[in-house]
């Protein structure tokens, strides 16, 4: 076998894996997105409408995923609940990014007392588990859609800010940023034109990974009764609701839990794919 052939074989492996991941991850997320967007339209049910004659009905032609203790259509509630969960997750990640990225850039680039002060605050958050921070914030403001979003956003930013800051520290003294400084570029321009583009792959991957965590933590808060409040559905709230019937009607818990698993799996696969594409050196083998 020639040297050229060996080289071709070693590059073919990751390509095959990436293709597989894109298809699986994309299909999972695509199907779930479709389910959330059009599910309630095709089912024709109001997610909160009760039908006491149809309580605990198993999956059937009328109710594709069955019904809950109040006869509400689980397919519709899962679809609407998925919207809630994803909106919270996206909002929380957006909020965390909006706080963490500027702070990380600033502290990493400026260093000195700004870095010291902000990183001590970050350390303070690090001393407490993320979910506990979120529970504390929900406890302070009361459980609701917006509080859950706020709580997760505020709980996630410290970790993200430290990551960005570390990356900036690694980039700010590289030759090309020094060169920009030498030709007279100001801090703002250096951050915007030199540092942020270098960080983009990291930011994209990290944001995607964080989205998976946000879905899980929303489910965690909802399961503890601290997320979206009944009768509005969210995946976490539906999982919590199913707990009361886990021994008598176990399929409700399965139906509530499987989409969480699938969406987090889909997000993680896509994060892997993005990492492989944007940072080929660190690609998984």
């Amino acid at each position: 076998m020639s040297a050229v052939a060996v080289a071709a074989a070693t590059t073919a492996g990751p390509r095959v894996k990436r293709g597989w991941k894109i298809w699986v991850g994309g299909a999972l997320l695509g199907i779930l997105a479709l389910f959330m967007l059009v599910g309630p339209l095709i089912s024709g049910y109001d997610p909160n409408a009760t039908d006491l004659e149809a309580r605990f009905a198993g999956p059937s032609a009328q109710h594709w995923l069955g019904t809950d203790d109040l006869g509400r259509d689980l397919f519709t509630r899962m679809a609407v609940g998925g919207r809630m969960t994803m909106l919270i997750a996206l909002g929380a990640v957006a909020l965390a990014s909006a706080i963490a990225i500027p702070l990380g850039l600033l502290t990493g680039y400026l260093g000195g007392w700004v870095d010291l002060a902000v990183m001590r605050v970050v350390d303070l958050f690090f001393a407490i588990p993320t979910l506990l921070v979120a529970i504390g914030i929900v406890g302070l403001f009361g459980p609701s859609f917006s509080t859950t979003l706020l709580a997760l956003g505020l709980a996630f930013w410290p970790f993200y800010a430290r990551l960005v800051r570390s990356a900036v520290v690694g980039v700010r003294d590289l030759a090309y940023t020094d060169a920009a400084r030498v030709i007279g570029a100001g801090p703002w321009r250096i951050i915007r034109k030199e540092i942020v583009p270098a960080l983009l792959p990291l930011l994209i991957v990290q944001t995607t990974v964080l989205l998976g965590f946000a879905v899980l933590d929303e489910a965690g808060l909802g399961f503890l009764g601290l997320g979206v409040q009944p009768p509005d559905p969210s995946w976490g709230a539906l999982l919590a609701q199913s707990r009361g019937f886990v021994l008598s009607h176990p399929w409700i818990g399965v139906i509530a839990g499987v989409p969480i698993l699938l969406v987090v799996l889909g997000i993680n696969i896509m994060a892997d794919v993005l990492r492989d594409r944007l940072d080929p050196q660190g690609a998984s083998t």
């Binding site: 909160n48 009760t50 109040l70 459980p143 009764g225 409040q229 009944p230």
Partner: peptide, 18 residues
């Protein structure tokens, strides 16, 4: 939650609060 549905039928809006 049932109260919410019942009263909705006569035009009363109830928000359950845990």
């Amino acid at each position: 939650q049932l109260l919410q549905q019942n009263l909705q039928e006569v035009g009363i809006e109830v928000t359950p609060r845990k």
